[in-house]
């Protein structure tokens, strides 16, 4: 089979990171095409179950992107997300997942370049740690 490429699922809040991703595109900042975004109104909408679900379905990396602290369109959704994410990360690492496989970052709507850079970097990180052990496909090497 062809070379393994990480499958990366991104939950992006509509007000900041989703806009940042749009901006990256309109300025033609490139990042790996294996990064796919699910649009959510706020990182506060992201249930820990979604991240677990993505991983159990074989995603190699899961990324949650929201507004910078203090900039949340819904005042404090990103703080709620941060708390949940910290706890979830402890659970995941306890289960044997590499801590780097899940990541949360604040990327504003004007940080198109930063979005592209972080995606490229996250992709490299996942390439380094290898496929999700839950993957059962032939690509997973």
């Amino acid at each position: 089979m062809s070379e393994w490429k990480p499958n990366i699922v991104v939950f992006a809040c509509d007000w900041c990171t989703y806009q940042g991703a749009d901006l990256a595109g309109s300025l033609r900042y490139e990042y790996p095409a294996n990064v796919n975004i699910i649009r959510v109104p706020c990182t506060g909408r992201v249930e820990p179950e979604f991240i677990v679900s993505a991983l159990s379905n074989g995603a190699d990396g899961v990324f949650v992107g929201g507004c910078h602290p203090g900039d949340c369109h819904y005042k404090e959704g990103n703080y709620k997300a941060m708390r949940r994410f910290t706890l979830l990360k402890m659970v995941l690492t306890g289960m044997g997942f590499e801590a780097e496989r899940v990541r949360m970052e604040w990327i504003s709507g004007s940080e198109g370049k930063r979005f592209a850079e972080i995606m490229a970097e996250f992709n490299r990180t996942i390439e380094k740690i290898g496929p999700n052990p839950f993957r059962r496909d032939s690509n997973a090497g």
């Binding site: 699922v9 979604f50 679900s53 379905n57 074989g58 059962r136 690509n139």
Partner: peptide, 16 residues
């Protein structure tokens, strides 16, 4: 959202 997750990870054989 679950349906979107499953769609984006389709064909890589995770353990749903």
């Amino acid at each position: 959202i679950e349906a979107q997750i499953i769609a984006l990870t389709a064909g890589i054989g995770g353990v749903s």
